[in-house]
Design a protein around this nucleic acid. Structure first.
Lengths: 112, 112
DNA sequence: ATGCTTGTGCGAGAATAGTCGAACGATATG
DNA sequence: CATATCGTTCGACTATTCTCGCACAAGCAT
């Protein structure tokens, strides 16, 4: 059988603040991270059901390469999860603080 | 006399997470904020003594418009300070967390 | 006033990022 | 096996950002 898709991730120690900040500076990606923080591991398509696939890949790749999410192949889909522990190790409190601030400033978030 | 330079700043409540994150995603600006957090109010030129003036203005303007810093004219120079309290009110813990993470991941910071 | 310093605005150019369609490979389903 | 589904890659286009030189305005010094 052919090798399944394999994704490259930065080591925990190599996660860099500027890249993480940049990854979280896009409203779309920020909402993805917010959803990941609520849901745990998620099918990639749930992060942007209405987006063109190539756009979705673009954003998930950026989140992965910046060290924010972990991606793994599962059959033909791909599953995404927030690297919460790694981020907590590297930058304690960062994700919680950012997501808390994000929720505070987003009125329309109380659904589900 | 002509009106002195006046700078527009977003209200505390209008400071938005994505813009702040973007402002802090540039290594140069991040180092500026780091220096501001140590020094309090600072002459703008101290934020980038070797930069072309127009480049410096570009970054300080971006930091100001995103709500990260407060700028005021003082004679012909301009003084910059971190909007620490406003940011703390709006996004508790964010700046401290980011700067802490930044310091952690920057070996060459122990001078001065 | 003359000259010097500082910040700003404008414009150009380069670099980076975002969006998306099309083609492809891999996987699941019939 | 044939087909549909999903993710990735590529290329193109657009938009945004970064950098910087230059000209200008305002404040300070002699």
């Amino acid at each position: 059988m052919a090798a399944a898709r394999v994704y490259k991730h930065p080591e925990t120690g190599d996660i860099a603040i500027p890249r993480v900040m940049f990854a979280l500076s896009e409203p779309l990606r920020l909402s993805m991270v917010q959803l990941l923080s609520e849901r745990g591991e998620v099918d990639s398509i749930e992060l942007g059901p209405d987006l063109p696939r190539s756009t979705l890949t673009h954003h998930t790749s950026l989140l992965r390469e910046s060290g924010v999410v972990f991606v793994r192949a599962e059959g033909r889909k791909c599953m995404i999860q927030l690297r919460r522990d790694d981020l907590e190790t590297r930058f304690p409190g960062l994700i919680d603080t950012v997501l808390h601030g994000y929720q505070e400033s987003n009125p329309g978030m109380a659904e589900a």
